[in-house]
Amino acid sequence: MVKIGIMGLTGCSGCQCEILNCKDALYKLLGKVEFCYFPLAQDNNSFEEFDILFVEGSVTTDLDEEKVKKGRKVSKILVAIGSCACYGGVQAQRNDEVTLEEMLKEVYGTTEFPVNVSKPKAVSEIVKVDYELPGCPLDKKQFVYAVAFLLNGVKPFFPKIPVCHECKLSETECLTLKGIPCQGPISYAGCGAPCTSAGVGCQGCRGDCDFPNYEEMISILKEEGLSTKDAANFIKVFRGKQAQERLSEIFSKGVLNEKRG
Results as ranks from 00 to 15, higher is better:
residue 139 D to V: 10
residue 214 Y to G: 01
residue 164 C to S: 14
residue 183 Q to W: 04
residue 163 V to K: 03
residue 132 E to Y: 08
residue 181 P to W: 05
residue 32 K to G: 02
residue 169 L to Q: 10
residue 213 N to F: 05
residue 43 D to T: 13
residue 23 K to Q: 11
residue 100 L to E: 12
residue 174 C to S: 08
residue 10 T to I: 07
residue 160 K to L: 15
residue 61 T to Q: 06
residue 17 C to Q: 08
residue 161 I to Q: 06
residue 222 K to P: 03
residue 152 N to W: 00
residue 51 D to N: 15
residue 11 G to R: 00
residue 119 K to P: 04
residue 89 G to I: 06
residue 162 P to F: 08
residue 239 R to C: 06
residue 26 L to A: 03
residue 13 S to E: 12
residue 62 D to H: 13
residue 59 V to K: 01
residue 227 S to E: 04
residue 129 V to W: 07
residue 43 D to C: 03
residue 6 I to R: 00
residue 15 C to V: 11
residue 236 K to G: 02
residue 211 F to H: 13
residue 139 D to M: 02
residue 40 L to P: 04
residue 82 G to M: 05
residue 10 T to N: 13
residue 108 Y to T: 08
residue 134 P to D: 10
residue 236 K to R: 15
residue 231 A to N: 07
residue 256 L to G: 02
residue 89 G to M: 04
residue 136 C to L: 08
residue 89 G to L: 05
residue 16 Q to R: 11
residue 85 A to V: 09
residue 130 D to K: 04
residue 183 Q to F: 10
residue 119 K to N: 09
residue 161 I to G: 02
residue 143 F to C: 09
residue 55 V to H: 00
residue 188 Y to I: 06
residue 20 L to G: 04
residue 255 V to S: 05
residue 171 E to L: 12
residue 88 G to M: 04
residue 206 R to V: 02
residue 120 P to Q: 09
